[in-house]
Nucleic acid binder design. Structure first.
Lengths: 189, 189
DNA sequence: GCATCATACGTACAAGCGTACACATCGCCC
DNA sequence: GGGCGATGTGTACGCTTGTACGTATGATGC
Protein backbone atom coordinates (compact mmCIF):
# COMPACT_ATOMS: atom_id res chain seq x y z
CA UNK A 1 0.00 0.00 0.00
CA UNK A 2 2.30 2.74 -1.14
CA UNK A 3 -0.50 4.93 -2.36
CA UNK A 4 -0.37 6.65 -5.72
CA UNK A 5 -2.02 9.92 -4.81
CA UNK A 6 -2.47 12.70 -7.31
CA UNK A 7 -0.99 15.49 -5.20
CA UNK A 8 2.27 14.06 -3.83
CA UNK A 9 1.05 14.71 -0.25
CA UNK A 10 2.94 17.13 1.95
CA UNK A 11 5.12 15.21 4.38
CA UNK A 12 5.14 16.47 7.93
CA UNK A 13 8.42 17.64 9.41
CA UNK A 14 7.23 16.33 12.76
CA UNK A 15 9.33 13.73 14.53
CA UNK A 16 10.46 12.56 17.95
CA UNK A 17 7.57 13.52 20.18
CA UNK A 18 7.96 11.79 23.53
CA UNK A 19 4.89 12.08 25.66
CA UNK A 20 2.68 12.08 22.60
CA UNK A 21 0.68 9.27 24.11
CA UNK A 22 -0.08 11.48 27.08
CA UNK A 23 -1.06 14.38 24.89
CA UNK A 24 -3.39 12.13 22.97
CA UNK A 25 -5.18 11.13 26.15
CA UNK A 26 -5.59 14.77 27.09
CA UNK A 27 -6.82 15.60 23.61
CA UNK A 28 -9.31 12.76 23.87
CA UNK A 29 -10.70 14.24 27.10
CA UNK A 30 -11.10 17.59 25.39
CA UNK A 31 -12.92 16.03 22.47
CA UNK A 32 -15.18 13.99 24.76
CA UNK A 33 -16.07 17.14 26.70
CA UNK A 34 -16.81 19.06 23.52
CA UNK A 35 -18.45 16.47 21.30
CA UNK A 36 -19.36 13.63 23.61
CA UNK A 37 -18.19 10.04 23.45
CA UNK A 38 -20.30 9.54 20.34
CA UNK A 39 -18.45 12.35 18.57
CA UNK A 40 -15.04 11.13 19.67
CA UNK A 41 -13.32 9.56 16.69
CA UNK A 42 -9.73 8.80 15.85
CA UNK A 43 -9.74 11.60 13.33
CA UNK A 44 -11.21 14.12 15.75
CA UNK A 45 -8.69 13.37 18.48
CA UNK A 46 -5.85 13.40 15.97
CA UNK A 47 -6.96 16.82 14.78
CA UNK A 48 -7.22 18.12 18.35
CA UNK A 49 -3.73 16.91 19.18
CA UNK A 50 -2.39 17.90 15.77
CA UNK A 51 -1.00 14.51 14.93
CA UNK A 52 -1.60 12.40 11.83
CA UNK A 53 -4.33 9.78 11.85
CA UNK A 54 -1.84 6.94 11.63
CA UNK A 55 -0.46 7.92 15.01
CA UNK A 56 -3.68 6.91 16.74
CA UNK A 57 -3.51 3.23 15.97
CA UNK A 58 0.15 3.18 16.75
CA UNK A 59 -0.34 4.39 20.32
CA UNK A 60 -3.68 2.75 21.04
CA UNK A 61 -4.73 -0.60 19.71
CA UNK A 62 -8.33 0.54 19.53
CA UNK A 63 -10.54 3.53 20.11
CA UNK A 64 -12.04 1.79 23.10
CA UNK A 65 -8.63 1.56 24.74
CA UNK A 66 -8.13 5.29 24.26
CA UNK A 67 -11.50 6.06 25.83
CA UNK A 68 -10.75 3.81 28.79
CA UNK A 69 -7.43 5.50 29.45
CA UNK A 70 -8.96 8.94 29.12
CA UNK A 71 -11.74 8.23 31.58
CA UNK A 72 -9.32 6.60 33.98
CA UNK A 73 -7.30 9.80 34.01
CA UNK A 74 -10.41 11.92 34.52
CA UNK A 75 -11.71 9.81 37.40
CA UNK A 76 -8.28 9.72 39.00
CA UNK A 77 -7.97 13.48 38.94
CA UNK A 78 -11.47 13.93 40.35
CA UNK A 79 -10.81 11.49 43.18
CA UNK A 80 -7.54 13.23 44.00
CA UNK A 81 -9.33 16.55 44.51
CA UNK A 82 -11.77 14.82 46.83
CA UNK A 83 -8.93 13.29 48.81
CA UNK A 84 -6.97 16.49 49.14
CA UNK A 85 -9.88 18.67 50.18
CA UNK A 86 -11.00 16.25 52.85
CA UNK A 87 -7.64 15.19 54.21
CA UNK A 88 -6.85 18.85 54.85
CA UNK A 89 -9.82 19.17 57.20
CA UNK A 90 -8.90 18.91 60.88
CA UNK A 91 -12.26 18.33 62.51
CA UNK A 92 -15.80 17.59 61.49
CA UNK A 93 -16.79 21.23 61.08
CA UNK A 94 -13.86 21.77 58.77
CA UNK A 95 -14.86 18.64 56.89
CA UNK A 96 -18.37 20.03 56.34
CA UNK A 97 -16.88 23.24 55.00
CA UNK A 98 -14.60 21.20 52.79
CA UNK A 99 -17.57 19.36 51.32
CA UNK A 100 -19.40 22.61 50.65
CA UNK A 101 -16.38 24.07 48.92
CA UNK A 102 -15.85 20.86 47.00
CA UNK A 103 -19.34 21.03 45.55
CA UNK A 104 -19.52 24.77 44.99
CA UNK A 105 -16.03 25.36 43.67
CA UNK A 106 -14.57 22.17 42.29
CA UNK A 107 -17.57 20.21 41.10
CA UNK A 108 -19.85 23.00 39.93
CA UNK A 109 -16.92 25.19 38.95
CA UNK A 110 -15.87 23.20 35.94
CA UNK A 111 -18.45 22.56 33.28
CA UNK A 112 -15.88 20.46 31.49
CA UNK A 113 -15.36 18.04 34.37
CA UNK A 114 -19.06 17.83 34.88
CA UNK A 115 -19.75 16.86 31.30
CA UNK A 116 -16.94 14.33 31.43
CA UNK A 117 -18.45 12.73 34.51
CA UNK A 118 -21.88 12.34 32.98
CA UNK A 119 -20.36 10.99 29.78
CA UNK A 120 -18.51 8.46 31.91
CA UNK A 121 -21.71 7.43 33.66
CA UNK A 122 -23.37 6.62 30.38
CA UNK A 123 -20.37 4.91 28.87
CA UNK A 124 -20.00 2.84 32.03
CA UNK A 125 -23.53 1.56 31.63
CA UNK A 126 -22.44 -0.48 28.63
CA UNK A 127 -18.71 -1.00 29.10
CA UNK A 128 -17.50 -3.20 31.97
CA UNK A 129 -14.00 -1.70 31.94
CA UNK A 130 -15.46 1.76 32.42
CA UNK A 131 -17.84 0.51 35.07
CA UNK A 132 -14.79 -0.58 37.04
CA UNK A 133 -13.31 2.89 36.65
CA UNK A 134 -16.51 4.49 37.93
CA UNK A 135 -16.73 2.17 40.89
CA UNK A 136 -13.14 2.73 41.90
CA UNK A 137 -13.77 6.45 41.78
CA UNK A 138 -16.91 6.14 43.92
CA UNK A 139 -15.17 3.91 46.42
CA UNK A 140 -12.34 6.37 46.75
CA UNK A 141 -14.54 9.40 47.30
CA UNK A 142 -16.65 7.53 49.81
CA UNK A 143 -13.48 6.49 51.60
CA UNK A 144 -12.41 10.12 51.72
CA UNK A 145 -15.71 11.04 53.34
CA UNK A 146 -15.29 8.25 55.87
CA UNK A 147 -12.30 10.03 57.29
CA UNK A 148 -14.80 12.32 58.97
CA UNK A 149 -18.22 10.68 58.83
CA UNK A 150 -19.58 7.24 59.66
CA UNK A 151 -20.16 4.84 56.77
CA UNK A 152 -23.89 5.41 56.46
CA UNK A 153 -23.56 9.17 56.52
CA UNK A 154 -20.72 8.99 54.03
CA UNK A 155 -22.77 7.05 51.56
CA UNK A 156 -25.81 9.26 51.92
CA UNK A 157 -23.74 12.38 51.71
CA UNK A 158 -22.02 11.09 48.61
CA UNK A 159 -25.41 10.59 47.00
CA UNK A 160 -26.58 14.04 48.04
CA UNK A 161 -23.46 15.60 46.55
CA UNK A 162 -24.04 13.76 43.31
CA UNK A 163 -27.63 14.88 43.18
CA UNK A 164 -26.86 18.50 43.95
CA UNK A 165 -24.20 18.64 41.28
CA UNK A 166 -26.17 16.92 38.57
CA UNK A 167 -29.38 18.72 39.36
CA UNK A 168 -27.68 22.03 39.43
CA UNK A 169 -25.81 21.40 36.23
CA UNK A 170 -28.89 20.49 34.24
CA UNK A 171 -31.08 23.23 35.60
CA UNK A 172 -31.60 26.61 33.98
CA UNK A 173 -30.75 28.37 37.21
CA UNK A 174 -27.88 26.56 38.89
CA UNK A 175 -27.86 26.45 42.66
CA UNK A 176 -25.88 29.20 44.36
CA UNK A 177 -23.13 28.43 46.88
CA UNK A 178 -25.54 29.58 49.61
CA UNK A 179 -28.13 27.08 48.46
CA UNK A 180 -25.54 24.33 48.37
CA UNK A 181 -24.43 25.25 51.87
CA UNK A 182 -28.01 25.25 53.09
CA UNK A 183 -28.76 21.81 51.68
CA UNK A 184 -25.62 20.21 53.08
CA UNK A 185 -26.02 21.79 56.50
CA UNK A 186 -29.60 20.64 56.58
CA UNK A 187 -28.57 17.08 55.92
CA UNK A 188 -25.68 17.09 58.39
CA UNK A 189 -27.33 19.21 61.08
CA UNK B 1 -33.92 4.64 -8.98
CA UNK B 2 -35.63 1.39 -9.71
CA UNK B 3 -32.71 -0.71 -8.69
CA UNK B 4 -31.61 -3.71 -10.67
CA UNK B 5 -30.79 -6.11 -7.88
CA UNK B 6 -29.61 -9.65 -8.51
CA UNK B 7 -32.10 -11.43 -6.25
CA UNK B 8 -35.48 -9.87 -7.07
CA UNK B 9 -35.97 -8.86 -3.42
CA UNK B 10 -38.86 -10.37 -1.47
CA UNK B 11 -41.70 -7.89 -1.28
CA UNK B 12 -43.36 -7.47 2.09
CA UNK B 13 -47.06 -8.21 2.38
CA UNK B 14 -47.24 -5.47 5.05
CA UNK B 15 -49.64 -2.61 4.48
CA UNK B 16 -51.98 -0.28 6.31
CA UNK B 17 -50.43 0.06 9.75
CA UNK B 18 -52.05 2.94 11.58
CA UNK B 19 -50.18 3.87 14.74
CA UNK B 20 -46.91 2.84 13.20
CA UNK B 21 -45.43 6.18 14.13
CA UNK B 22 -46.21 5.48 17.76
CA UNK B 23 -44.72 2.04 17.60
CA UNK B 24 -41.58 3.50 16.09
CA UNK B 25 -41.20 5.87 19.02
CA UNK B 26 -41.60 2.99 21.45
CA UNK B 27 -39.14 0.90 19.48
CA UNK B 28 -36.70 3.80 19.59
CA UNK B 29 -36.95 3.90 23.40
CA UNK B 30 -36.23 0.20 23.54
CA UNK B 31 -33.20 0.57 21.32
CA UNK B 32 -31.92 3.55 23.31
CA UNK B 33 -32.26 1.58 26.53
CA UNK B 34 -30.46 -1.40 25.06
CA UNK B 35 -27.77 0.15 22.90
CA UNK B 36 -27.62 3.77 23.99
CA UNK B 37 -28.23 6.86 21.92
CA UNK B 38 -24.97 6.21 20.11
CA UNK B 39 -26.19 2.79 19.01
CA UNK B 40 -29.59 4.05 17.95
CA UNK B 41 -29.73 4.10 14.16
CA UNK B 42 -32.53 4.14 11.67
CA UNK B 43 -31.78 0.57 10.76
CA UNK B 44 -31.70 -0.60 14.36
CA UNK B 45 -35.06 0.97 15.20
CA UNK B 46 -36.57 -0.32 11.98
CA UNK B 47 -35.43 -3.82 12.88
CA UNK B 48 -36.84 -3.51 16.42
CA UNK B 49 -40.20 -2.36 15.09
CA UNK B 50 -40.06 -4.79 12.17
CA UNK B 51 -40.61 -2.15 9.52
CA UNK B 52 -38.56 -1.47 6.41
CA UNK B 53 -35.85 1.17 6.52
CA UNK B 54 -37.72 3.43 4.13
CA UNK B 55 -40.46 3.81 6.71
CA UNK B 56 -38.17 5.70 9.04
CA UNK B 57 -37.63 8.73 6.88
CA UNK B 58 -41.25 8.79 5.95
CA UNK B 59 -42.43 9.19 9.54
CA UNK B 60 -39.54 11.27 10.87
CA UNK B 61 -37.69 13.87 8.89
CA UNK B 62 -34.49 13.04 10.73
CA UNK B 63 -33.04 10.74 13.33
CA UNK B 64 -32.76 13.69 15.69
CA UNK B 65 -36.50 14.27 15.48
CA UNK B 66 -37.15 10.65 16.38
CA UNK B 67 -34.83 10.87 19.39
CA UNK B 68 -36.51 14.06 20.56
CA UNK B 69 -39.96 12.53 20.37
CA UNK B 70 -38.82 9.40 22.14
CA UNK B 71 -37.26 11.29 25.03
CA UNK B 72 -40.28 13.54 25.29
CA UNK B 73 -42.44 10.47 25.74
CA UNK B 74 -40.08 9.03 28.35
CA UNK B 75 -39.91 12.23 30.37
CA UNK B 76 -43.66 12.69 30.18
CA UNK B 77 -44.30 9.22 31.53
CA UNK B 78 -41.80 9.70 34.35
CA UNK B 79 -43.32 13.01 35.34
CA UNK B 80 -46.79 11.49 35.35
CA UNK B 81 -45.73 8.84 37.86
CA UNK B 82 -44.32 11.58 40.07
CA UNK B 83 -47.56 13.52 39.85
CA UNK B 84 -49.78 10.57 40.59
CA UNK B 85 -47.81 9.29 43.55
CA UNK B 86 -47.67 12.67 45.20
CA UNK B 87 -51.17 13.87 44.46
CA UNK B 88 -52.50 10.75 46.13
CA UNK B 89 -50.83 11.68 49.42
CA UNK B 90 -53.15 13.32 51.92
CA UNK B 91 -50.77 14.83 54.41
CA UNK B 92 -47.06 15.41 54.78
CA UNK B 93 -46.35 12.05 56.35
CA UNK B 94 -48.06 10.32 53.47
CA UNK B 95 -46.08 12.49 51.07
CA UNK B 96 -42.83 11.35 52.67
CA UNK B 97 -43.91 7.74 52.26
CA UNK B 98 -44.87 8.48 48.68
CA UNK B 99 -41.39 9.84 47.98
CA UNK B 100 -39.76 6.78 49.53
CA UNK B 101 -41.92 4.46 47.47
CA UNK B 102 -41.28 6.55 44.36
CA UNK B 103 -37.54 6.14 44.72
CA UNK B 104 -37.50 2.51 45.87
CA UNK B 105 -40.16 1.12 43.58
CA UNK B 106 -40.61 3.30 40.54
CA UNK B 107 -37.22 4.87 40.03
CA UNK B 108 -34.93 2.07 41.18
CA UNK B 109 -37.37 -0.59 40.09
CA UNK B 110 -36.93 -0.13 36.38
CA UNK B 111 -33.41 -0.43 35.06
CA UNK B 112 -34.76 0.51 31.68
CA UNK B 113 -36.19 3.85 32.78
CA UNK B 114 -33.04 4.56 34.70
CA UNK B 115 -30.83 4.03 31.69
CA UNK B 116 -33.15 6.14 29.58
CA UNK B 117 -32.89 8.99 32.07
CA UNK B 118 -29.12 9.01 32.11
CA UNK B 119 -29.04 8.79 28.34
CA UNK B 120 -31.32 11.80 28.24
CA UNK B 121 -29.05 13.74 30.58
CA UNK B 122 -26.10 13.25 28.30
CA UNK B 123 -28.02 13.94 25.13
CA UNK B 124 -29.42 17.09 26.69
CA UNK B 125 -25.94 18.38 27.33
CA UNK B 126 -25.48 18.90 23.61
CA UNK B 127 -28.98 19.24 22.22
CA UNK B 128 -31.05 22.32 23.14
CA UNK B 129 -34.35 20.64 22.26
CA UNK B 130 -33.59 17.82 24.66
CA UNK B 131 -32.43 20.24 27.30
CA UNK B 132 -35.88 21.79 27.17
CA UNK B 133 -37.42 18.36 27.63
CA UNK B 134 -35.24 17.73 30.68
CA UNK B 135 -36.07 21.07 32.21
CA UNK B 136 -39.79 20.66 31.72
CA UNK B 137 -39.54 17.29 33.40
CA UNK B 138 -37.60 18.72 36.33
CA UNK B 139 -40.00 21.61 36.72
CA UNK B 140 -42.94 19.26 36.80
CA UNK B 141 -41.48 16.94 39.41
CA UNK B 142 -40.46 19.87 41.56
CA UNK B 143 -43.96 21.26 41.24
CA UNK B 144 -45.35 17.92 42.38
CA UNK B 145 -43.12 18.06 45.45
CA UNK B 146 -44.28 21.58 46.19
CA UNK B 147 -47.76 20.25 46.82
CA UNK B 148 -46.41 19.08 50.15
CA UNK B 149 -43.11 20.84 50.81
CA UNK B 150 -41.90 24.43 50.66
CA UNK B 151 -39.95 25.49 47.57
CA UNK B 152 -36.51 25.21 49.13
CA UNK B 153 -37.19 21.78 50.57
CA UNK B 154 -38.70 20.65 47.28
CA UNK B 155 -35.63 21.60 45.33
CA UNK B 156 -33.23 20.03 47.80
CA UNK B 157 -35.32 16.90 48.04
CA UNK B 158 -35.46 16.65 44.28
CA UNK B 159 -31.67 16.78 44.17
CA UNK B 160 -31.38 14.17 46.91
CA UNK B 161 -33.72 11.86 45.05
CA UNK B 162 -31.69 12.26 41.89
CA UNK B 163 -28.49 11.54 43.75
CA UNK B 164 -29.85 8.47 45.52
CA UNK B 165 -31.16 7.02 42.31
CA UNK B 166 -28.09 7.67 40.22
CA UNK B 167 -25.68 6.66 42.91
CA UNK B 168 -27.55 3.50 43.62
CA UNK B 169 -27.85 2.62 39.98
CA UNK B 170 -24.15 2.93 39.27
CA UNK B 171 -23.01 1.19 42.41
CA UNK B 172 -22.16 -2.50 42.68
CA UNK B 173 -24.42 -2.85 45.68
CA UNK B 174 -27.57 -0.82 45.11
CA UNK B 175 -29.14 0.83 48.13
CA UNK B 176 -31.89 -1.16 49.81
CA UNK B 177 -35.36 0.29 50.40
CA UNK B 178 -34.42 0.59 54.08
CA UNK B 179 -31.37 2.64 53.22
CA UNK B 180 -33.41 4.86 50.94
CA UNK B 181 -35.95 5.35 53.69
CA UNK B 182 -33.24 6.20 56.19
CA UNK B 183 -31.64 8.82 53.94
CA UNK B 184 -34.91 10.53 53.13
CA UNK B 185 -36.12 10.53 56.71
CA UNK B 186 -32.82 11.94 57.80
CA UNK B 187 -33.14 14.81 55.38
CA UNK B 188 -36.78 15.54 56.17
CA UNK B 189 -36.63 14.87 59.90
C1' DG C 1 -66.08 1.57 -9.71
C1' DC C 2 -62.61 4.62 -10.01
C1' DA C 3 -59.38 8.47 -9.10
C1' DT C 4 -56.49 10.30 -5.69
C1' DC C 5 -53.33 10.67 -2.31
C1' DA C 6 -51.33 9.45 2.03
C1' DT C 7 -48.77 5.73 3.27
C1' DA C 8 -45.46 1.98 2.54
C1' DC C 9 -41.38 -0.13 0.52
C1' DG C 10 -36.82 -1.10 -1.62
C1' DT C 11 -32.59 0.55 -2.86
C1' DA C 12 -28.88 3.80 -4.18
C1' DC C 13 -25.43 7.07 -2.73
C1' DA C 14 -22.07 10.02 -0.55
C1' DA C 15 -19.82 10.66 3.72
C1' DG C 16 -17.46 9.19 7.58
C1' DC C 17 -15.80 5.55 10.31
C1' DG C 18 -12.08 2.08 12.54
C1' DT C 19 -8.41 -0.19 11.29
C1' DA C 20 -4.43 -2.20 8.67
C1' DC C 21 -0.22 -1.65 6.77
C1' DA C 22 3.77 -0.26 3.75
C1' DC C 23 7.15 2.95 4.00
C1' DA C 24 10.12 6.79 6.28
C1' DT C 25 13.02 8.33 9.83
C1' DC C 26 15.51 8.88 13.87
C1' DG C 27 17.72 7.60 18.74
C1' DC C 28 20.51 4.51 20.77
C1' DC C 29 23.71 0.85 21.64
C1' DC C 30 27.61 -1.86 20.22
C1' DG D 1 29.66 4.83 12.67
C1' DG D 2 26.54 1.57 11.45
C1' DG D 3 22.55 -0.99 11.89
C1' DC D 4 18.27 -1.97 14.02
C1' DG D 5 14.29 -1.42 16.43
C1' DA D 6 11.07 1.98 18.15
C1' DT D 7 8.48 5.59 16.53
C1' DG D 8 6.08 8.41 13.08
C1' DT D 9 3.32 9.04 8.64
C1' DG D 10 0.22 8.59 4.66
C1' DT D 11 -3.27 6.16 2.52
C1' DA D 12 -6.33 2.27 1.19
C1' DC D 13 -10.13 -0.82 2.37
C1' DG D 14 -14.43 -2.60 3.87
C1' DC D 15 -18.22 -1.28 6.34
C1' DT D 16 -22.06 1.32 8.38
C1' DT D 17 -24.43 5.41 8.50
C1' DG D 18 -28.31 9.10 7.35
C1' DT D 19 -30.93 10.35 3.84
C1' DA D 20 -33.18 10.76 -0.80
C1' DC D 21 -36.26 9.09 -3.94
C1' DG D 22 -38.78 6.16 -7.49
C1' DT D 23 -42.23 3.09 -7.29
C1' DA D 24 -46.22 0.29 -5.32
C1' DT D 25 -50.55 -0.14 -3.01
C1' DG D 26 -54.72 0.30 -0.67
C1' DA D 27 -58.34 3.35 2.03
C1' DT D 28 -61.34 6.80 1.18
C1' DG D 29 -64.57 9.99 -1.02
C1' DC D 30 -67.30 10.54 -4.87
Amino acid sequence: MTGRAGPPAPRRPRRHDPGRRDRLIDAALTVIAERGVAGTTHREVARAADVPLGSMTYHFTSLEELLAEAFTRHAGAAARVFDERLSAAGDRDAAVEAVISLVSDDLLGSQRDLVLSVELYVAAARNPALRAVTQAWMARSRQALERHFDATTARELDALIEGLVLHSALSTDPMTPEQIRHAIHRFLR
